[in-house]
Nucleic acid binder design. Structure first.
Lengths: 193, 193
DNA sequence: GTCTTTTCTTAATCTAAATCAATGGATTCG
DNA sequence: CGAATCCATTGATTTAGATTAAGAAAAGAC
């Protein structure tokens, strides 16, 4: 159950087998069925989630009832509502499973105890956040300065697995465009080739 | 020169006077004149910047020559191109001073030495990144699900100082809209009151 | 203080993408 | 298995905001 987690941690810092064993108890394994909610708007997000298998997404629903996908997360990725998790305020996001998934949960108290017990993990988490920051900033940049078509092409080249794994209307929601527009863009692109 | 920095650090963690003294040497003070570049696209971003006084912005210029402001930063804020800073790859951002400013520079080697010498700073930096993550995520959400008017109103309520301190065309660039559109929105809002 | 540059406003036109609507495929479910 | 829901495509229409253009106001330079 911890294979992917340790593999991912190992890409950034190295943990001794003892350190690996000592962090295991802080995580709670859980399975989610496709479409099952992990978090609903209004609840406090009590955990950060590491995905061992499957895929989740976070999204909001606006006044007009439209879904807006904020994040996709695949095997080896983390997902949560950072704001709610760190402040204990109710979340305005929903998180659910796009596929049957196996996940590892880490609560805020366990998170704090874990970094105290294995200080190297503080470094790992800092690196994780660094990378998220970089990714989010580049997403903001593309939302500001790229055309809709360019945004799609950028997503396609950066995360081809996301494009191919999920239905198109979810991709459209992530890009912030109507599904019809995405369909037209794809048509246009295939003709170009 | 370090007043604001220590005040800000003190909001998150507490440093003893000795610890304060021991981190000072890692920072290089610098002054910037209004309009002076701190970073130009193509250069590697060698430092993260803490602003003691004044204001900076980061932005890109697209193919059509349009500027897109990615971040404003005021006294007590940090600014840099995280991607370029951590990877040493050339940046695609520009950073310049919107006002005469006094800043503190921290290089990557100094950054690493500092957290080794004062491990508490690792925690401070993690908290900083947490907060940046939260802010960026909420910005993405508003770019996806809010109308242009709502985005402006949200910025106005979250960072009124930014709205009032900088010319409107810069605010428009940050919001990703044309200056004319912002002017119309403001007109509409004043009539509503 | 005037001159120049920058900033803001307003109006007219244009355009990309949303919306509305209908159809045919594809999946899911009882 | 067939019914039902979900999904992708295409076309017609509408709309928000970009673009273009011009003038007014404000700020900065000399």
């Amino acid at each position: 159950m911890f294979e992917i987690l340790f593999q991912k941690i190992d890409e950034k810092i190295s943990l001794s087998p003892e350190e690996q064993e000592s962090i295991k108890p802080f995580f709670t394994p859980k399975k989610l069925r496709k479409k099952q909610y992990f978090l609903q708007a209004g609840e406090v997000c009590k955990y950060v989630v590491f995905i061992e298998k499957g895929a989740l997404r976070s999204y909001t629903i606006d006044d007009k009832g439209h879904e807006h996908i904020v994040q996709f997360a695949l095997e080896g990725w983390w997902i949560s509502d950072n704001y709610s998790f760190f402040t204990s305020e109710p979340s305005s996001y929903m998180i659910d499973a796009l596929e049957d998934s196996e996940i590892l949960l880490l609560s805020l108290p366990d998170y704090e105890s874990m970094v105290l017990k294995v200080p190297k993990m503080e470094r790992y988490l800092r690196i994780l956040m660094q990378n998220s920051l970089i990714a989010l900033q580049s997403r903001i940049l593309s939302s500001l300065s790229y055309s809709t078509e360019e945004k799609y092409l950028k997503l396609l080249s950066t995360y081809p697995d996301i494009i191919h794994r999920f239905p198109q209307h979810l991709i459209a929601s992530y890009l912030g465009i109507a599904p019809e527009t995405l369909s037209r863009i794809r048509k246009k692109i295939t003709f170009k080739k």
